[in-house]
């Protein structure tokens, strides 16, 4: 069975799903992530689904479950990179992904996690000086 790798970047766990997951692989990812959240104390989980060409009800439910589990373990989950055709299909299928935060890409996902933790800027995660502030809307 394939296993999806989980990378730790600062205070965030990054999961980039690159394979067409079997249901078992999806369930294993759920369990691996819960363990890594507790082991690392990370406060953010970003799940990148850019490479997924479908999200069916099983994977949709897995994403919702991961979001709920991480919330209970004091971490925010953001799903990023959903393809337009996948979004259209998900809605027609009847899945609304309630309770899941989404962002268009990993960078925006990191900003969202940082904002959720009360940081103004995700750059505060690294030690280098902040770049010049950009105008905020």
């Amino acid at each position: 069975m394939d296993r999806v790798p989980i990378l730790k970047i600062g205070d965030i766990l990054l999961v980039s799903i690159q394979v067409d997951m079997s249901d078992q692989t999806a369930v294993a990812l759920q369990e691996d992530l819960a363990e890594r959240i507790v082991a690392t104390g990370c406060h953010g989980v970003i799940i990148d689904i850019t490479a997924l060409d479908i999200v069916d009800s099983f994977v949709g439910r897995m994403l919702s479950t991961i979001a709920s589990i991480s919330r209970v373990l004091d971490a925010e989950t953001v799903v990023v990179g959903m393809r337009p055709a996948v979004a259209i299909t998900l809605v027609e299928l009847g899945l609304s992904l309630n309770g899941i935060r989404t962002a268009l890409n990993v960078e925006r996902g990191m900003e969202l996690v940082a904002a959720g933790r009360g940081y103004d800027d995700y750059d505060e995660f690294d030690d280098g000086p902040d770049p010049a502030p950009t105008a905020s809307p």
Binding site: D53, I88, T89
Partner: peptide, 17 residues
């Protein structure tokens, strides 16, 4: 089309499961 491919593959995934 890409959207229709995505829809039919998703439907097939549900029904095969």
């Amino acid at each position: 089309s890409l959207v229709d491919q995505t829809k039919v593959v998703t439907a097939a995934s549900e029904l095969a499961r």
